[in-house]
Design a protein around this nucleic acid. Structure first.
Lengths: 228, 228
DNA sequence: CGTTAAAATGGTACTGAGTACCGCGGGCGG
DNA sequence: CCGCCCGCGGTACTCAGTACCATTTTAACG
């Protein structure tokens, strides 16, 4: 075994101490002392104390941004799906580490907050991407309501990811990739729908009913303005 | 005019200095000095420096929680609508103060983050409320997919509020109350729909197309398992 | 193998937020 | 008039994060 880098030793010491005494009860000096390194070295490797726990948030966010940026106009849904899987698989790949982080963020409000902020950053990326493509909207220039739809859709995408991730973190999801695919399918079912503005074509509003299709058709015709 | 309370003088001094030098360039000592008060007094009135800018976040959150808690089972949508309006109207009622805060949060990352966290707290309240009522879900015991739907719906509610609020803050919305009502109507259109689980009956997936209804019917039949 | 430049590490000193504690003064009821 | 309590001020502390410089280690190159 080759000698671990300073960064690794710091992370190891930090997690060990956080587990032993808790996050707030552990000072940066404590960490550097256990790691046998200087305080300066800590802040060179991690910008803040929190960064030890969320080391590659920025890199991951940048990867998502890149994935969305380089997405051809072909299938934007695929790009979103890819991006979400990118993040999910990153955490799943971390395995136990991700679960230890979850245990910490569940107990320490400051860390929980930080995770919420991180989620908001992803949401922003998705919102801009969706608004830029005006996903599922018919109108070319996507007015104000399209912006609102984009914001909601982005929120739903992030909610889908978070939901599945948390289930996996709690050990409730044996196959998170399949689950996130299903969750994203639900998102597109909800949002890849009509824009509020109809301009020609046929708009079908989603609903659920005990009736069969034949009895629904008249209502559909009425809504669409295409009487039998 | 009666003498302003210490709390008010501190807030006034703080905002003045934030406008002049910026948030990070202003220390708490600067604020207390301009207010002619002691440093201790500042932290007695505001737990943190950020709290000067977000004074009644906690109270507002508690009001929302209370509104949702005391909602009869009659119309849960009304409770959500009320709660959202509660928050929106609070900020609108602040008038210029809210806009000054917006100017700050737009420029200072730390303050922007804090606002995101606050949004996440609201989302949590709405999620719990919706999940508890299993809004629009057919199943009685609301399984896992119902949880997911609740999370997405809550995210959409918060997105709707934020969208309208930000429009008003930017001076783009002359009638934010009407807009938020419309935005919430969109949310219910999206979510007061079928649960993902079919259990008898007919599920129609939302979509938009240039085709007319007659050409769609075969596909609908196929999906619903009701061939002509 | 020795020299040297660059990179990593360490130490010191500082700023500023937030906490703990105590002492003071002024209003208010008894 | 007295005591009591509450709001205020001051001091001293902890700890995160920054700036700067000295030192060591590493690696490249002759």
């Amino acid at each position: 075994m080759t000698k671990p880098t300073a960064r690794e030793r710091l992370a190891e010491a930090a997690f060990a101490l956080f587990d032993e005494r808790g996050y707030e009860q552990t000072t940066v000096d404590d960490i550097t002392e256990r790691a046998g390194l200087g305080r300066t070295t800590f802040f060179r490797n991690y910008r803040t104390k929190e960064d030890v726990i969320f080391p590659d948030h920025d890199r991951l966010l940048e990867q998502v941004a890149e994935r969305l940026r380089t997405a051809g106009p072909a299938n934007p849904l695929g790009a979103i799906s890819d991006a979400v899987r990118l993040v999910l698989l990153h955490y799943v790949g971390e395995g136990d580490l991700a679960r230890r982080r979850y245990a910490l963020t569940s107990k320490v409000p400051a860390l929980h907050d930080r995770e919420m902020v991180s989620g908001a950053r992803y949401q922003r990326l998705f919102r801009e991407f969706i608004a830029g493509r005006r996903l599922g909207a018919a109108g070319q220039q996507g007015g104000e309501p399209a912006q609102l739809r984009a914001e909601m859709a982005a929120a739903a995408v992030v909610a889908a990811h978070n939901h599945v991730l948390r289930r996996w973190l709690r050990g409730e999801s044996p196959d998170p990739v399949r689950e996130v695919d299903e969750a994203l399918r639900l998102v597109t079912e909800l949002f890849a729908a009509p824009s509020g503005e109809a301009e020609g074509g046929t708009t079908v509003v989603a609903f659920r009913t005990g009736q069969d299709i034949d009895s629904l058709i008249p209502a559909l015709r009425r809504i669409a303005g295409q009487p039998a």
